[in-house]
Computed example of a mutant assay.
Amino acid sequence: MTNIDSVVLERAIVHKVGNPTRGEALKLSANPLTLNDEIVRGLLTRYFLGPFNENEQFHFTHISDLGMNEVYHYVSEMFDNPKNFTLQSIQLAQFLYSKSTHAKVKEGELYVVQFSNVPFGTEYIEAIGIFKSETKETFLKVFPHGESWEVIAEDGIDINKLDKGCLVFKKNREEGYVVCVADNTNKQNDAHYWVNEFLQVTRSANSYHYTDAALGMCKLFISNELAEKFDVNKSDQIDMLNRSMEYFKTKDEFKLNEFAEEVLHHPEVIDSFTQYKQTYEVARQVTIEDEFDIHLSAVKKQERVFKSVLKLDKNFHVYIHGRKDLIEKGYDEMTGKHFYKLYFDQES
């Protein structure tokens, strides 16, 4: 998150949550932290809130009744009755402990935090944060010893790397609140317990979600599917990636048919893209509308991973930004090697 200077950390409590299948304990705190040092409060606020992208929004769900979502229930109690903060944080820790049975779930500290004056659009509202630190780093501590200095190693938390987090804004309660989620460990297929088992949240269907998902789908289609089904070289793929990004950067609204005609051109490629979209939505469990407003923050995020680099062995990297007609690929029978011709007016 940005613009967090206004945020006030009202109270925080820490519980130790282990993995019950390894015999690790659940150690509960009886009282919130004593945070009299303003520097520590500021460091904790940045540690907790810094990793979140407020545009990537989720909401709590439940298969039968939203009120039966445990985290939703405990957070609601905190908003309604701040005096029960410690009790509800214990309930959260106990519930997380019951969900921490996967072999790769690590023991760690669970922080439950109440914030006020958190920026949300044009407002400043309350929020409850739930964070877990699992990864320990080794730090060197230098201290005076008589007339000399000594160095020791200590294990601690890197305040620049939040492992897991959830920030619940006091907004849209009936729809499951507005929730932001961070999960920077276990990103593969091993322990998605934080999002699916513990929080039970799903992405909110908004313009940011649609834009982000559509660009991700386009990148995978062009990088993988297109090369498998059609006779295209790497420079053709890069050119199509560039045209895709240019479409999203210059249009206010995405229209599937318009995108297909302006970027994909060929009917057989368009048909393949349409089929791929259906497969992608099922595999990723997302829905991408045929028309939606384009969100520029999602475009900027995806632009960082849209690579326009043509790598030729280990000798050359060619950055292609446009004008596919100025690139020509060929094969030299004398050397038995492929080549590219690049046409330009001047070098700089």
Rank of each mutant, 00 (worst) to 15 (best):
Q275I: 15
D65T: 11
D80F: 03
I130Y: 02
S308A: 13
T34L: 08
N81S: 13
I327D: 06
C166K: 08
S100H: 05
V17S: 08
V263E: 09
F48V: 07
H209Y: 14
Q88S: 13
L44K: 02
F60C: 08
Y343E: 11
F306Y: 09
I90T: 12
N69F: 01
V40Y: 06
K277C: 07
R323V: 15
T45E: 09
G121F: 01
S207H: 05
V17A: 01
E123W: 02
K99Y: 10
Q346L: 15
D236E: 01
I63K: 13
C218M: 14
L312H: 09
A103T: 13
K106L: 00
T135A: 01
T122Q: 11
G67Y: 10
P119Q: 10
H265V: 15
E126W: 09
D332H: 09
V151F: 01
E225F: 12
P119M: 10
R46D: 02
T122H: 11
L26I: 00
K249P: 05
K164E: 01
A12D: 05
V14A: 04
G121T: 06
L215H: 14
M245V: 07
F48T: 02
E70L: 08
L241C: 03
Y319M: 11
F85C: 11
I4D: 10
V71K: 01
F254D: 04
P82F: 12
G176Y: 00
E38V: 11
S100C: 15
K251W: 10
K300I: 01
P20W: 03
R203Q: 15
L87S: 15
Y111D: 01
H209I: 14
F48A: 01
A260T: 05
H209E: 14
T185W: 00
F230I: 03
E54G: 04
E228T: 10
F85V: 15
I222R: 00
K104P: 08
V282C: 04
A213H: 00
R243P: 05
K164Y: 05
K83D: 14
E289M: 02
T274E: 08
D290T: 10
W194A: 01
I288P: 01
E281V: 05
L35W: 13
S235I: 15
V118T: 12
Y247C: 00
S223E: 12
L220I: 14
V299G: 03
N172L: 04
